[in-house]
Amino acid sequence: MQVFVIGNISVDETYLINDLPQKGSSIHGAKTHQDLGGKGANQAIILSRCGINTILIAAIGNDNQGHWCKEKIEQERLTLRPNSPRDCRTDTSLILNCADGDNANITTTTAADALSINDIEQELLLSKPGDVVLQQGNFSHQKTEAIFSLARQKGLTTVFNPSPVKDTFAELLPLIDILVVNQLEAQRLGHADDILLAAHALLNAGVGQAVVTLGAEGSMLLNATGVTRVAAEPVSVKDTTGAGDTFLAVMLASSLLRQSPLTAADLHRAARASSITIGRTGTLSAFPTQIELVQILK
């Protein structure tokens, strides 16, 4: 069994600021980190550290940052495809880390946009029925839909983390086996302010299983058998960057290793792993190590 993570790679630059700037304002900040990032790369790295055979299908540019990203990926237990860089700049994420531990991100998609559906289709020739395709929200609606439609044709399990979210992603829900969203994404795609109503609307739209992360309030798993709530792990917040990616990857890895649909146990393990990320600063440098993940997944 393989997981094909189809998404993006970026260079994350983190700046510490007191609060988010208002329109037209100028503020001081301090650059604290430069790290490998991108939701696709984040999730693929953590899945591979969990012992999952992981292929990251993502584009890097033909610049120094692209070379740096490739070197970082080669230190992990995953395969990066395609082999050749695109003729563009590598994507960058600007992370504004506020004093209270929260953050806001600005991400370019130049390299991600340069990855064509034909490129992706060629890489998926190696897939087999029962393998998993995991996407985030960095592609256009049309490309995202084409990838999931292709995955369904091939008998692959589809997992969607629609972040950054687009309203049109609601049209793709019938193609999704596992949907992972935060509260705001659930409300937006489910067209309801009440989180339970929104989450049930996602299921009614055709999603097989839905997981809603609720920050300090924990998470919820919804499927045909009902709703299961799981508490968050207590942690002293240092940086929330990458916490959602950690949660998703460990939850999915736990389910795949057990060869069973998602349960509360998978969400508990994911909460433990994401608490490690939240308690550290940075992106890649904040993720749980392979040793830590092996202990969590026992």
Rank of each mutant, 00 (worst) to 15 (best):
1 M>T: 13
7 G>C: 10
8 N>Y: 04
13 E>N: 13
13 E>Y: 12
15 Y>T: 10
23 K>P: 00
27 I>D: 02
29 G>N: 05
29 G>E: 02
29 G>F: 03
36 L>P: 06
38 G>R: 06
40 G>S: 02
42 N>T: 05
44 A>P: 05
48 S>Y: 03
49 R>N: 05
49 R>L: 05
50 C>N: 04
54 T>R: 02
56 L>E: 01
57 I>F: 04
58 A>S: 03
60 I>T: 15
61 G>Y: 07
64 N>E: 15
66 G>Q: 10
68 W>E: 13
70 K>T: 15
70 K>D: 10
71 E>A: 15
72 K>P: 01
72 K>E: 14
73 I>H: 04
73 I>R: 03
77 R>C: 03
78 L>S: 01
80 L>T: 05
80 L>W: 05
82 P>W: 07
82 P>R: 07
83 N>I: 11
84 S>C: 10
87 D>M: 03
88 C>P: 01
89 R>M: 11
90 T>P: 07
91 D>Y: 07
91 D>C: 08
91 D>E: 08
92 T>G: 03
93 S>R: 08
93 S>F: 09
98 C>P: 00
103 N>Q: 08
103 N>L: 06
107 T>S: 14
107 T>I: 13
108 T>A: 06
118 N>M: 14
119 D>E: 10
124 L>W: 05
126 L>K: 12
126 L>D: 13
129 P>V: 01
129 P>D: 01
130 G>V: 08
133 V>W: 07
133 V>K: 09
134 L>G: 10
134 L>D: 10
137 G>W: 06
140 S>C: 14
144 T>I: 05
147 I>P: 03
153 Q>A: 12
154 K>R: 15
157 T>V: 15
157 T>E: 15
158 T>A: 10
159 V>M: 09
163 S>R: 00
163 S>T: 10
175 L>T: 09
176 I>R: 05
178 I>M: 07
180 V>W: 06
184 L>F: 14
186 A>K: 06
189 L>T: 08
190 G>A: 05
191 H>I: 01
191 H>P: 00
191 H>E: 07
194 D>M: 06
195 I>C: 04
200 H>R: 15
201 A>L: 01
201 A>T: 09
202 L>M: 06
202 L>K: 06
203 L>H: 08
205 A>E: 08
208 G>F: 03
210 A>P: 07
213 T>L: 12
213 T>S: 14
215 G>L: 13
215 G>P: 13
218 G>C: 12
220 M>N: 07
220 M>T: 12
221 L>V: 14
221 L>Q: 14
223 N>I: 12
224 A>P: 00
229 R>C: 15
229 R>Q: 15
234 P>M: 13
235 V>E: 08
236 S>L: 12
237 V>F: 05
238 K>W: 00
238 K>D: 00
240 T>C: 09
240 T>H: 03
241 T>L: 14
244 G>H: 08
245 D>T: 01
247 F>D: 04
248 L>H: 02
248 L>A: 04
249 A>L: 00
250 V>I: 00
254 S>F: 01
258 R>D: 13
261 P>H: 11
262 L>V: 07
263 T>M: 12
265 A>G: 06
272 R>Y: 09
272 R>E: 14
274 S>L: 02
279 G>L: 11
280 R>Q: 15
283 T>R: 00
283 T>P: 00
284 L>M: 11
289 T>A: 06
290 Q>I: 02
290 Q>P: 02
296 I>Q: 04
297 L>S: 02
